[in-house]
Write a protein that binds this DNA or RNA. Structure first.
Lengths: 155, 155
DNA sequence: TATTGTTATACTCTATAACTATA
DNA sequence: TATAGTTATAGAGTATAACAATA
């Protein structure tokens, strides 16, 4: 056994400082993912605050903007938003003049961004992309590998 | 220009299948993190359902269990739970006989798991760790590098 | 019969503000 | 003065169930 230097007496007492806790959670991938996700979500909330839209609403606008004429139900599936929650969400965006809908076949609705919706989406997406780029640029890991690993955890 | 073979007529119409959408969100790290986190959280919810506790409650029990006698406020800080939400959380766990508290200095509370709390924590943590291990074992990426990358995104 | 959209409702988690007591 | 804990309350976000209309 290698000799060990005796630590100072106060180092032997756990909880001395009173604030640093042992965290078994730090060894869990799920926990680390949640904390990282929450950190980026927090940034996103700040970015979106001036626009007066939520993260879910922004995701919705971005997806509809990239798929003009898409069915409401498909957007809901893609974002894992339940039908029952989709109605008031679309209602808010329509009320703000950001989204327009039109019947497809009598039971489905097609969605499109209005000009105002496109303008807001463009502004917001630019800021979101820039913030995301900044978060990625100091990663000490291959970005493609990271994305692939994250994708492998979904479903 | 290279000659192009004419596609079948129905292939020219986007949205033919009607379900796959173009998703600019897939290029965002924040979005991929959120989806991956939500997937693992879903697993966790299923694991905890038989115990009748939430993900937050399980995290709380695990952290208190690893730090007997810790201050309630320190646990709240470590898990980013606001003081106002901590009181009913601890109240529920005390009412179920999983956690015990004791005054430290007249304004702070120290928390400890009861025997029942330790037993539940042991059972739950074993299942959680096993589920987490399964999620990690097929990652095509260095685990240490992944954890470091995730940590670099927090704060 | 299965899907789409709607309505109503409830539950969880989180957020804010005000208050008391203590270091 | 800053911190710890409490209380009350409000807001997102998400969940279920039931319904009508349509494919």
């Amino acid at each position: 056994m290698a000799p060990r230097i005796a630590p100072p007496m106060n180092a032997a007492a756990p909880r001395a400082g009173g604030s640093k806790l042992v965290s078994p959670l730090d060894g869990l991938l799920g926990y680390r993912l949640r904390r990282a996700s929450m950190a980026l979500m927090g940034d996103l909330v700040e970015i979106l605050r001036p626009f007066g839209i939520s993260v879910v609403e922004a995701s919705f606008l971005i997806l509809v903007g990239a798929n003009p004429g898409c069915r409401q139900s498909d957007v809901g599936r893609a974002l894992a938003i339940k039908r029952a929650n989709l109605t008031p969400l679309v209602g808010r965006l329509k009320a703000r003049g950001l989204v327009a809908d039109a019947p497809i076949d009598g039971r489905s609705l097609s969605l499109t961004l209005t000009d105002a919706g496109v303008a807001l989406r463009d502004e917001a997406l630019a800021l979101i992309s820039e913030s995301d780029r900044q978060a990625r640029q100091h990663l000490a890991i291959d970005e493609q590998a990271l994305f692939a690993a994250l994708a492998s955890l979904v479903r």
